[in-house]
């Protein structure tokens, strides 16, 4: 066990997998010589060379399409989109090609592709560089959506994603790259679609992923001081969606709140809330509530931006409404 950053954990996963299987290639803008704009691919270009760690032009649709074709041709590509905001440029490739190829050709072709993309707000990057798009991608059948929080999750989930026969969107959070945590030494594989209880509690289930897991853990500490014992359930991804874990937790706590960094309207919180009510309405002692970002493009001004993003205090306020 070693305490390392999320950045190091992801780098370890990439390094180990590139070492394990020559069919794995990494491609993206500045992933090679520059070692990644967030330095996630540090050392990989030097270790594996330009045929396997491929610097691409700034052409997101081209990157994803090329990675998709390479996957269909027998490779196992990992495409990095510098930030998830630019994935919108490649939306046709992701949605119309990557996600649909297995189904629309009757299962004949496979796309074993991982698309890594960091995102998230809070850095005063303004309207076009602050997205969290996991809820959007959850909407499309055919592509897995994984969103790690702890460094160990990032490593174990990424290694599993790389070995998956299906396309996986692996959404990292820019704010978490420097966050440290314990990561077991040696091989670490975490199955996709298995939620993880990051803090056990009796009174309310806080359902989150990625950076909002930390926000919920902070909220849980504040709530504990007020006598409310919150459980923090880390979904670790949205597709596959571990509703069994959600229902099991809510069955015990009888209260639930979804906490997401992206916009409230059309977000994944609404989907989870609806499913809870469809499957276990009778166990609820209170309505399922949602905490999410304000329905507004990210403003540049620091105070305004912080107002738009959920914080522990917002979670605490809403939890208290349930009692």
């Amino acid at each position: 066990m070693a305490e390392i950053t999320t950045r190091e954990a992801i780098n370890q996963a990439l390094h180990e997998e590139l070492e394990r299987d020559e069919k794995i290639i990494l491609l993206g803008e500045d992933v090679g010589l520059y070692e990644g704009s967030f330095k996630v691919s540090k050392g990989l270009y030097a270790a594996f060379g330009e045929q396997r760690v491929i610097d691409t032009p700034i052409a997101e649709a081209g990157i994803i399409g090329m990675a998709c074709g390479a996957a269909m041709g027998g490779l196992r590509p990992i495409a990095e989109i510098m930030t998830v905001n630019f994935a919108i440029v490649a939306m046709d490739q992701i949605v119309n090609h990557v996600a649909k190829i297995h189904y629309m050709f009757g299962g004949q072709l496979q796309v074993p592709l991982v698309i890594r993309a960091p995102g998230g707000g809070g850095n005063q990057l303004g309207a076009q560089h602050s997205h969290s798009l996991e809820g959007l991608f959850m909407h499309f059948p055919g592509i897995r959506v994984v969103c790690p929080s702890f460094p160990a999750d990032a490593k174990g989930l990424l290694k599993t994603a790389i070995r998956s026969a299906d396309p996986v969107l692996f959404l990292e959070h820019e704010e978490l790259y420097g966050v440290k945590g314990d990561v077991p030494d040696g091989e670490l594989l975490i199955p996709l679609g298995v939620a993880d209880i990051k803090r056990a509690g009796r009174d309310v289930t806080l359902i989150a992923l990625s950076k909002m897991v930390y926000t919920c853990l902070e909220a849980a500490e504040q709530l504990a001081a007020e006598g409310i014992d919150a459980e923090v359930l880390d979904l670790r991804g949205l597709n596959p969606l571990d509703m069994a874990a959600v229902i099991e937790s809510v069955g015990r706590t009888r209260r639930a709140i979804t906490v997401e960094e992206s916009w409230l309207t059309g977000g994944w919180g609404g989907e989870i809330a609806a499913r809870i009510m469809e499957t276990c309405f009778d166990v609820l002692d209170a309505p399922v509530l949602r905490v999410a970002a304000a329905d507004v493009s990210a403003p540049y001004n620091k105070q305004l931006e912080q107002l738009a993003i959920p914080h522990a205090e917002d979670v605490v306020t809403r939890v208290k409404e349930l009692f």
């Binding site: 649709a61 081209g62 990157i63 994803i64 399409g65 090329m66 990675a67 998709c68 074709g69 390479a70 996957a71 269909m72 041709g73 027998g74 490779l75 590509p77 046709d92 490739q93 119309n96 090609h97």
Partner: peptide, 12 residues
């Protein structure tokens, strides 16, 4: 839409 896929197949 399929033109970049051709590049990837060629790369593979």
């Amino acid at each position: 839409g399929h033109l970049p896929l051709a590049v990837g197949l060629g790369y593979a």
